[in-house]
Each structure stands twice: as structure tokens, then as C-alpha cells.
Amino acid sequence: MAVTEGDEKTMLRLEKISVTRDGNDGAQLLLLDDISFSAQSGKITAVIGPSGGGKSTLIRLINRLAEPGSGSVLIEGRDIAGIDPLQLRRMVALVPQKPFMFEGSVLDNLQRSFLYRKEAPPGAGSEEVRHALTLARFDHAMVQRDARSLSLGEQQRVSLARALITRPRVLLLDEPTSALDRRTADSLAATFQEICRSQGLTVILVTHDLRLAARVADYCLYLEAGRILEQGSVEDLLGHPKCAELRRFLAEPSAKGE
């Protein structure tokens, strides 16, 4: 796959991000250490690596669910520290690992973000609801169903539609398929790819599942112990790993999604 295609532009940039946390013994734990990378619109950037390596910490900085100790996150060149977090989270949507369904129907769940902003929520037949459900490939006929009665795979699609309904520019996916069986996971992965291409979204996909990364990602970062040890195209990283840590990680059965 060609790395440069037409007027591809940098949507998201992380610069020298570090995050520390106070350990139990009073020592400072370094969760992320000098992280810098860029992500393009219309592309999926996968962040892979062993659990506890800082992947989820990283993704939570991008919609300001957490604050970095030092460094900055830029969206279209603008530091997000200067953007109202409630505004930012409409622009940068996050789909968590476990879909949480609020009480009520699928429609109630889709209307949440409008109610938080005290805007009139779109109805079941509205363009917004149809658009979001179509993108997430969720059957519109089920829009009045009780959200908590849906299967886990269906709930993850509702969670995706709920994130897309505000038409974000950046989509953050935190281990979005790890709770699903392989068939459901594969079909959801295809959906991610379609959305990214058709909407020109910048997608950051955190996963320990190499199969998923290989299937959908364009770029790839390998994160271990809070540091990016290798980054580049997904073919290079998974096909020709350079560092010993990544080679070891690739050889582990748990990294293959099994």
C-alpha cells in the first residue's frame, strides 16, 4: 500500500508526551515516556503492544479523559489543552472496550450526547440517526429495542453509532473487539475500515490483537513499557520487525488473537 496518497494531511500529532503516576511506595512510575507520533485523516493507526504497556493511557489523553504530565496533543495544529473538553469530546470520539449501554432503547442511547448539550435530540427517523446507524451497520429496524437486551456485538455497534452521531473527526477505539468472538470481531473490523475511508476519519486503534491490526491498519506503533519502540507501516512492523522486543511479542500466541 502506498504511504503517500494525494493531499494526505496530519490531523493529529502527539509531541513528547510523558505521563507519570505515584506508585505505592511513593516512587514515580513512568507510564508513558517521550511519546511522539502523527496520524493522518482517512487512515487507521494501530497501537499494539503487551497489556500494561500504556496503550489505554495513551488513548485517554487524546480526548482529555486524562491529562499528560508533559508534552502536548495537537489537532489540526491546535493544542487540545486550549480546547473546552466538552467541545473536544464531540470532535474526538472514544469507543471503549466494554460497551456501556444506558437504560432505555437504542434511540435513547443515541440521543444522549444531544441531551448533554441541551439540544433537541434527533428522532428515530432523523437523518442523524439513520446516518450513524448506517455507518455502524446496525439495523435501523431495531432502533426501539432495549439496548441492554442486545448481544455484545450489537451493543458494540450501538456504542460505535453513538460515538459517530456527533460527526467526530478523530475516532479512538480502545480494544474494540476483544470481548467479541472472531466472526463478530472480523465483521466489526471491516466496518471500522469502511467508516475511516468514507468519512475521512483519523482512527487510532488500540489493540493487542495482531490479526485485527494487520487486517485494518495503515500505520502501526509498537508500545512497550511506556515507550514507542518501533513505528512505521503495518506491513513493515508485522512483516519485518527490527527490535528484539517486537520480535518476541510477535512470537507470543496471545498476540495473535487466540
Binding site: R89, P96, F100
Partner: peptide, 16 residues
């Protein structure tokens, strides 16, 4: 926790 963070991700304030 999960519910509160999901709401925050959807643009809710801490109070909401």
C-alpha cells in the same frame, strides 16, 4: 466508573 466515563466521552459534564 464505566457508565460515568462513557457519559464523559459523549460530552457530558461531571455533573451530568
Amino acid at each position: 466508573r464505566d457508565e460515568i466515563e462513557t457519559a464523559l466521552c459523549l460530552g457530558a459534564s461531571g455533573r451530568q
